[in-house]
Each structure stands twice: as C-alpha cells, then as structure tokens.
C-alpha cells in the first residue's frame, strides 16, 4: 500500500458527469420513444376506440398531477440555484418540497389506478376483453406507460433523496453540487415524459 492507493476515485470532472447524465437521458427518451411509436401505430389503427377510451380517464386528476410535476420541476431547479448561493437550509427545503410533491403524484396515481382496476379496467381483465381490441390496447398502453413513468418517479425520488442526505451531511455543497444538478436533470426528464403522456392519454379525445 503506497500513495498509489489513492487512485482514480479522486478524479473529478463535473462537465464529464453532466455529459454522462445527458447521454443517459437520451437513452431514457429512446426507451419511451419505443412506446410512443407503439402508441402512434395503435392509435392510428384504432382511432374510434382510442377516442372513446380516453374519455374514461379523469382529466382533473391528470391536470392536477401535471401541475404537481411542473411545480416540482421548478423547486428542484431552484434548489440547484440555492446550493450555489450557499443556502443549505433553503436547498434542503426545496428538495424536500420536490420529494413531497413526487409522493403526492404517486398517491394520486394510486387512487386513479385503483379506480380503474375496481371498474375492471386492467390488462387481461374479463371486462376489458369484452370491450374490444382498441380498448385493450389503450388501457394496456395506459397502464404500461404510466406504470413505467411511475417507476421513473420512484427512481428520481431515490436519486433526489441521496442528494438530500448529502446536502444534509455537507458532502454536497456549493463547490461540489454536480450530483444534485444531475438529479435535477433527471427529474426534468421525468417531468417532460409526463408532459407527453398527459395529452396522449387524457386530452386527445
């Protein structure tokens, strides 16, 4: 064990890690891109059914969730500014608000989903099988895409939770905040995907 023991982990490159985050965001966009293609193809093939099925979804809940995510995007962006201004307390509050909003989003989602499921609208359900192919595909896509999006919300929460703990322990501060910024970028991605999901499922009728 010599001085070589302090090895590459010391290497720090904020721009590099931001670049890495952007590249990862590309891959996430493509992941959902595949689903958007599937959505487009099936919407084209079942226009009437998609039109009617979309009316089953509650636009109010969808709108509330959209607003929640937009606000949370704002608070997380503000937290990266707060940390650069060396305001630790404000940073923690802003990340905290973001996390709470994310949780509210998931709770809303839970009630929305369980409402649909109690009406027998879930993949593979007998009710849905009787409704016809367009409805099967619409609700299949609805559960799959919003479900995958919810998984991303949870991943984002873990990411931001780590950021929160690090700010709290002073391991993340004004001269070393890349992790928080990357978390913010990821959170914007999660927000952005929802901005597309919302009109596709709720608004276009």
């Amino acid at each position: 064990m010599s001085e070589t023991a302090v090895h590459h982990d010391e290497h720090r490159d904020d721009l590099g890690s931001k670049l890495g985050m952007w590249l990862f965001i590309f891959t996430e966009l493509l992941l959902f891109g595949g689903l958007f293609i599937v959505y487009a193809v099936y919407r084209h093939a079942n226009q009437e059914a998609f039109h009617l099925a979309a009316k089953q979804l509650d636009v109010t809940v969808g709108t509330i969730n959209t607003v929640i995510l937009l606000i949370s995007s704002m608070t997380i962006a503000m937290s990266t500014t707060a940390i650069q201004k060396k305001d630790k307390k404000l940073t923690l509050i802003l990340i905290g608000i973001t996390l709470i909003l994310a949780l509210v989003f998931l709770v809303n989602k839970y009630f929305e989903w369980s409402g649909k499921i109690s009406h027998g609208l879930y993949p593979g359900s007998p009710v849905l099988e009787e409704l016809g192919q367009g409805d099967i595909l619409f609700f299949g896509l609805y559960f799959f895409m919003t479900g995958l999006h919810a998984v991303h919300i949870i991943v984002g929460m873990v990411f931001l939770g780590v950021g929160f703990m690090r700010v709290k322990n002073d391991r993340l501060s004004f001269d070393n905040y890349q992790l928080l910024e990357n978390g913010g970028l990821y959170w914007h991605l999660v927000d952005l995907i929802w901005i597309f999901l919302f009109p596709l499922f709720y608004l276009i009728t």
Binding site: F26, T27, G34, V38, P123, G124, F143
Partner: peptide, 24 residues
C-alpha cells in the same frame, strides 16, 4: 447508447405480455 433502449423496452413489453397479458 441509442439503439439498445429500443430493444430494452420491446423486451419489457414482451414481459408485460407474458405476465399481464396486455396484448401489445
């Protein structure tokens, strides 16, 4: 980076098909 996510989501859809019977 740019091609792999597509097969990722496709295989997830197949998994969804097998587990939930979605019908994609």
């Amino acid at each position: 980076l740019l091609a792999t996510p597509i097969v990722g989501i496709t295989l997830l859809m197949v998994a969804g098909e097998r587990i939930l019977g979605i019908g994609f």
